[in-house]
Design a protein around this nucleic acid. Structure first.
Length: 269
DNA sequence: ATGCTAACCTGCGCGC
DNA sequence: TGCGCGCAGGTTAGCA
């Protein structure tokens, strides 16, 4: 479930409990995630957590003996639990901490990952990523330039992590609605002016969702175990066949690259 | 190079 | 009540 706001919320939620703590022990009950969990992850045992950071939808936990990189996939969550709390189904990984707490990774679909990279090394997964959507590097000039000559639909274009990271299916739908752009439009045919609007809406929508702790759909919980409250503010995602909140036109639902796209045929041109 | 499809995996809701 | 089908927040490999 996690999109960028959920990942950022998770990172902020667990950071105070992890930073400067010693990782006493790492228990991997199920190593078969998106990529197998390497045995080298155990080199973090006994190490102090120096810092946490986020790049795209990855959470990086740095120690002197290497960096752990979490990805939550579609259904993953990370939260702090008491050591006395028994693991349940799909609780694949525990990090026992020196403060007595346990960082517990839960992921029914196992599309997530826990990677280990050596100190000072770069992960292959992070090296070819586009700019962060909330950074100054992501602007209309950049998107306009990157999109010239592309016949690809604007929606799949902005969901491509090599173009810009962190724009998942929910926020791609929402920002295209707010920008008034039809999702099927070829990226290469969109004017600089319309990209100005789109970039502004992507930044606004993501920032607002982070502010409110992410979007809760089915089972997401942030690092503190509390759900987010953005879901009721969605204009199009999950609302196919229902009336547009602006103009009352029936929202249309189509598929683009096996993902649901919902848009307003009247507001989005 | 570009852009689309299938695949990874489990759970849930819906229609019958 | 139970069963089968379709769908779900992401990402990558492979193919035309």
């Amino acid at each position: 479930m996690p999109e960028l706001p959920e990942v950022e919320t998770t990172k902020r939620g667990i950071e105070p409990w992890l930073k400067d703590q010693i990782i006493s022990k790492i228990i991997v009950r199920q190593p078969k995630l998106r990529w197998p969990v390497s045995d080298e992850i155990h080199s973090l045992e006994g190490e102090k957590v120096v810092s946490l950071s986020r790049r795209a939808k990855y959470i990086l936990v740095e120690t002197a003996k290497g960096t752990a990189i979490w990805h939550l996939g579609m259904s993953g969550s990370l939260r702090l639990v008491e050591a006395s709390e028994d693991p349940g189904g799909h609780d694949h990984i525990d990090w026992q901490l020196s403060n007595g707490k346990v960082l517990r990774y839960h992921d029914p679909r196992r599309f997530g990952a826990l990677l280990w990279v050596a100190p000072g090394a770069d992960s292959e997964h992070l090296t070819h990523l586009g700019p962060e959507p909330l950074s100054d590097a992501f602007d209309a000039a950049y998107l306009f330039q990157r999109s010239r000559g592309k016949s690809q639909a604007i929606k799949t274009f902005i969901m491509d992590g090599k173009v810009v990271v962190g724009v998942g299916n929910i926020y791609a739908n929402e920002s295209l609605f707010k920008a008034g752009i039809r999702p099927q439009t070829a990226a290469g045919k969109i004017s600089k002016q319309r990209y100005e609007r789109l970039v502004a809406e992507i930044k606004t929508v993501l920032a607002a969702a982070i502010e409110q702790g992410g979007t809760t759909l089915r089972d997401f919980v942030g690092g503190d175990g509390k759900p987010g409250y953005f879901a009721q503010q969605l204009f199009v995602y999950g609302r196919g066949g229902q009336p547009c909140k602006f103009c009352n036109t029936t929202l249309k639902e189509i598929r683009q690259g096996q993902r649901a796209t919902v848009y307003c045929p009247s507001c989005q041109r």
